[in-house]
Amino acid sequence: MATVGRTGASPRLLGFVEVLFVATPPFWTGIILLSIFSFGLQWFPAFGSTGPVSLVLPTIALALPIAGVLAQIMRNQLLSVERSAFALTARARGLTERSVFWHHTMRHAVLPTVTMSAWTLGTLIGGAVLVEQVFSRPGLGRVLVDAVKGHDTPVVTAVVTISAVVFVIANTAADLTAPLVDPRLRRVREASV
């Protein structure tokens, strides 16, 4: 496993793809996916909810921008962690690059990605509204928009409460996962108790 670098064609191409995913709005990605995979290749249904297969394109449209952000965070963390003192010490002890990557570098680099993945869950509601419109799918985004248009305060409150509960659960899961990824956090938590 080679070290992650900034030079060469592959890292530049990956960086471009990450920025492209982040910069492209989910509804635009949805339109492109519809054009290629529904209208062109006819692999997926274009509209409505016709079972699990109709969820594939909307899920991809919502996931690509988040995947781009998380990939950027992960790559930047890998770059900074691979130059840290403990990684250099592990290499000096004779560990292979693969061993340093999987046992040292990856463990430290994945922690911010786990934290950010929980945080980005909150952005899904905003993107879901437009993606649901593009794919003509019923969903929480459409329910929220209709409730706001109709001044239906109980429905708006319910959708916002559900979103807040999901956000809290995701962040709690990320906080509970962090000590499993990085044992140093377990020791800090045990010392504070």
Rank of each mutant, 00 (worst) to 15 (best):
A2D: 13
A9N: 00
S10Y: 10
P11V: 08
R12N: 06
R12A: 15
L13R: 03
L14M: 11
G15V: 02
F16H: 04
F16L: 15
V22W: 04
A23Q: 05
A23I: 02
A23R: 06
A23H: 07
P25F: 11
P26E: 02
F27M: 05
W28A: 15
G30M: 06
G30F: 02
G30P: 05
I32P: 03
L33G: 02
L34S: 04
S35Y: 13
I36P: 03
F39V: 12
F39D: 00
G40I: 07
A46Q: 07
F47D: 09
G48M: 04
S49F: 05
T50W: 06
G51N: 09
P52I: 15
P52N: 13
P58I: 03
A67V: 12
Q72T: 11
R75G: 00
Q77L: 05
F86P: 04
F86N: 12
T89P: 00
R91G: 12
G94P: 06
R98V: 02
F101L: 15
H104Y: 12
H104C: 05
H104R: 02
A109M: 11
A109E: 03
A109N: 06
T115M: 13
M116P: 00
T123K: 01
L124A: 13
G127S: 14
G127F: 03
V129T: 05
V129N: 01
Q133G: 08
V134E: 07
R137E: 00
L140R: 10
R142W: 04
V143A: 10
L144V: 09
V145N: 09
D146Y: 08
K149L: 15
H151V: 13
P154R: 08
V156H: 04
V156G: 05
L180Q: 11
D182T: 01
R187I: 12
